[in-house]
Design a protein around this nucleic acid. Structure first.
Lengths: 208, 208
DNA sequence: ATCACTTCTTAACCAAAGTCAATGAATCGG
DNA sequence: CCGATTCATTGACTTTGGTTAAGAAGTGAT
């Protein structure tokens, strides 16, 4: 990891600097001046986590917001003693521990680190202070959330509309690195099937 | 429909006045004064649609935003000539024709009215003007979108984590009126199954 | 190097949804 | 009121994933 800020946008996610991820993200929604980039990086709180660390447990009430700068965070539900994975958050993805209720409710799911992670962590107070000081970001944030909402709806539709085998093929296309980074039994549950079935699907595909 | 504004919050969705839906919605996120409620109702554009009207077609680029004040709108994809339903929007639900890309792209899905509808329709320009004139709503809107995002993620997880039969039971609990309002072959596709399978599931349930 | 543990694969059997086809039931237009 | 069309149900058969159980391959610790 070199010391100079990394602006080499062409690099793969694993090679980019953690800081550049958040700047890249905001830049998708607005022209960002050097000064503004600096403001953002000075405002965020960065924390590191170890593989296996749990960010959020079932039943816990949290109003934190995360942004993944490096590593991989898994979201899962514990149902009849079985972990059912519903999402993987990798570099450049925001993570919200809130499941839709405006009033904070106890979480129904877990968030845990699949790898060592570097995350930016924000409280509602951080957020409020930041928007009051830099009101131009309030709209950007709204638009970013709208974008996340659209993505979530897209992913939902893609899941509904495809078979487990198609879902595996789609994942292979859209996030090939994920398949390397994550154990297969977690992938299986993310695809909505059992590990045995994923094995069979992989075999079926190989034979063609 | 009586002339006076309807504030009877205990009424069922089908009985409430269309206007009250949007006020109810905003009130979930902030204390709303009489004056503010008036401002909102004066700012929105209301349009009526007939059963079968199509709000959005595949391939069409739209940047409109809808809010359902009365009726039922169905979202579906056309795959191999088959309509695959991914959502039903009823009274009190916002509808965004944008599938996650910040830059507007041609839609992959359709939006069509299952019933006669009364919708509020907003353009980005409407929105911008409204927020400039009434900046206190910018944050409310962001929070509302965050809430929608959470809901979408919740629904996604609920779908992933349950079998078709469980999904039908959940729907029966969470939106029983929908089952009356919508033809079964559309419900089936919304549950991710074929109409024949929904028939069998209903039969299975009856026999217990 | 060995043992324990986790992960992945394979196989046999079961349950549930898909497919195809036929028949009722309900709805709509004339 | 009738015929046409659409929608819902049922049955026979296929396909796919779940279940259970076993073993192989990889990983880590002592």
């Amino acid at each position: 990891m070199n010391g100079a800020p990394d602006t080499a946008w062409a690099k793969s996610p694993r090679q980019r600097s953690p800081e550049s991820e958040i700047i890249r993200y905001v830049s998708r929604f607005m022209e960002l001046s050097e000064a503004e980039a600096k403001v953002i990086l000075e405002s965020i709180h960065i924390r590191t986590f170890k593989k296996g660390d749990i960010l959020l447990r079932e039943g816990q009430v949290s109003n934190l917001c995360y942004f993944n700068m490096k590593g991989c965070v898994r979201q899962y539900y514990l149902i009849d003693g079985e972990e059912r994975t519903t999402n993987f958050y990798t570099e450049g993805q925001p993570i919200s521990p809130n499941e839709g209720t405006f009033k904070k409710k106890p979480s129904k799911f877990y968030l845990s680190c699949v790898e060592d992670c570097i995350l930016s962590v924000g409280t509602p107070e951080d957020e409020l202070r930041f928007f009051q000081k830099h009101p131009q970001f309030e709209m950007v944030c709204r638009i970013a959330v709208e974008d996340e909402l659209g993505k979530s709806q897209h992913d939902f539709a893609a899941f509904m509309l495809s078979s487990p085998e198609e879902r595996y093929m789609n994942l292979l296309k859209s996030r090939p690195e994920l398949i390397e980074r994550v154990p297969q039994y977690q992938l299986a549950s993310y695809l909505g099937i059992k590990p045995e079935s994923l094995s069979r699907i992989r075999k079926r595909i190989m034979l063609r």
